[in-house]
Design a protein around this nucleic acid. Sequence first.
DNA 1: GGGCAAATTTGACTTTTGTCGAGAGCCGTG
DNA 2: CACGGCTCTCGACAAAAGTCAAATTTGCCC
Lengths: 321, 321
Amino acid sequence: MAIRPAEQLIHKAAWLYYAHGLRQDEVASQLNISRASVAMYLRKARETGIVNISTSTQLFTDDVTARQLEDAFGLDAVWIAPENAYLADPSTDIAVLAASVFLELVKKGDRIGVAWGRTVYTIADIMSFADLQDVTVVQLCGNLGAPYSYRPDQCTMEIARRLNAKGLNFYAPLVLSTEELAKSLRAEPVIRDQLAGIADCDLALYSVGAVDADSHLVKCGALSPAEMEALRSQGAAGVIAGQIIDAKGEVLDCSYNRRVISAELASLRAIEKRLMVVQEDTKFEPLLSAIAGGLCTHLVIGAHMAERLLDHADEAGKKAS
Amino acid sequence: MAIRPAEQLIHKAAWLYYAHGLRQDEVASQLNISRASVAMYLRKARETGIVNISTSTQLFTDDVTARQLEDAFGLDAVWIAPENAYLADPSTDIAVLAASVFLELVKKGDRIGVAWGRTVYTIADIMSFADLQDVTVVQLCGNLGAPYSYRPDQCTMEIARRLNAKGLNFYAPLVLSTEELAKSLRAEPVIRDQLAGIADCDLALYSVGAVDADSHLVKCGALSPAEMEALRSQGAAGVIAGQIIDAKGEVLDCSYNRRVISAELASLRAIEKRLMVVQEDTKFEPLLSAIAGGLCTHLVIGAHMAERLLDHADEAGKKAS
DNA sequence: GGGCAAATTTGACTTTTGTCGAGAGCCGTG
DNA sequence: CACGGCTCTCGACAAAAGTCAAATTTGCCC
């Protein structure tokens, strides 16, 4: 990808300013443009990821609770966003943290699987831009037909756009009306290849959904509130990439799951780094299930959720002994 | 490594300012300190690598000459610092570029071999700080006894300090007076282990020295100008990590080389990414030799040197056809 | 517990940066 | 070739960030 002439100036300005530490007026005279233009170019440089400003997320892992959670649940790393302090909206804080953690985990040449949902979309939306051309972002599950604002393909594309990466979308519906059709569709080469490619990802980004009437699956019409309730009584404990899982983190044996086009849990587990982000405190049980099913190696949560998880682990520990 | 309480504030300020995009006065009121303190903390955050600001070096690889050089010499990547434009001192520009490239190539968990010399030290000196705790920086060759300002251990330590990485020094002289002593010393477990560990590096950073009276080896007393001249007539073409190489990039068969404690060229070649940086135009032949010897996969040079290399490759190409 | 040195914090000032509307240049079109 | 519509650039002002000496706090020793 050759650099367009307009980008040349942005690059040069960014280089002189950020790498050499010149002042904007010095850069301006070097490049024979006005300082105002330099300021504008620099903003563009930041917006396009030519310049990268990242903050260490250590503060949020170097924390006793985080360490205890890592040990208790056998996770590789846990980040806890302090809920009370800082800002008005705690869930924004979790998303900002998640975005930073995500960018910290991405490496050049990586293949990244992205699921969908409000959480994922919020992260995509506040994520800063980067310049990782050799990264590929793949969609972990089929699409929703309905005009829904956090569609799987939107989540994937938005993240790909932010990273300057290639986005690989999935042109299949998330849920079909019959099991047969889902089966045939999964056998289609285009779909089959995409599904097979998921296990090759280096990093996955997802959240977990709750099994209630507020679920995205209900809101977007994939399931009715009644169906959801029925699944719940059958043992549904959470939603991962559009699939219903039980308390053990396994796919629930139900018609709905057989009608879904999405990544197999085994493929997800094959991904080295599985970053799960949970914003809502109500998703306690779903999160437990996902952890139990080994669907998460890296976790970003709020302080309150962290406490609940730790209490739960302690309880379990006591019973065991 | 737990975060010290003083660092907590730095982290928090950096987080609110850089990740959340608050203004300094907003950060100040959040943390109940004055804005001036916030400004100070933010400077510390940048200086310690808690916040990382990096500029893409694409501009310097996305260039026809650079691409041609990659093809002509079979290199993985070439960066060319424009010599005429920009700044007063062209060699600073090369060093700044080299430092950026270096930081772009370093990954978490890497083991990095560092040689010595003015070039390497200049790079270390202008390199921005980063927070890569699990990185190890190892010294590629023995030390100089003389109080010389670009000593191998200084280069290693300075880079380790900048990266917040572990530095592994080499407590042996670079040159000994007899071959026997050098041999015995190389057999010492401490030294042997260090030398053996070099091949495990993921990245090497070095320059190449010229075989003349200006060489560091002469300046620091390892060789006299006359000895240097003699080596030159024996086929010496350059200096790599304290060793003399011939035009093919192989170790020159001479007493001096047998008295040196340094990385074997085979170990260097085993390193995946070998970043060579050359500032001086006078080092044309030494650089050619190093490239011929496969001692370099990634190259950072000035525009003038790039032209010369390309001309040389074209000449060679013509002769061949 | 008093006193002293070092480090930290601050208010006031200066410098640097961000922004915005006006104007200049640049097409394609009628 | 004149005309909008477009983007790009600049000057001037406002906002934000950097700086420094003075004040305050902290830690430490006697």
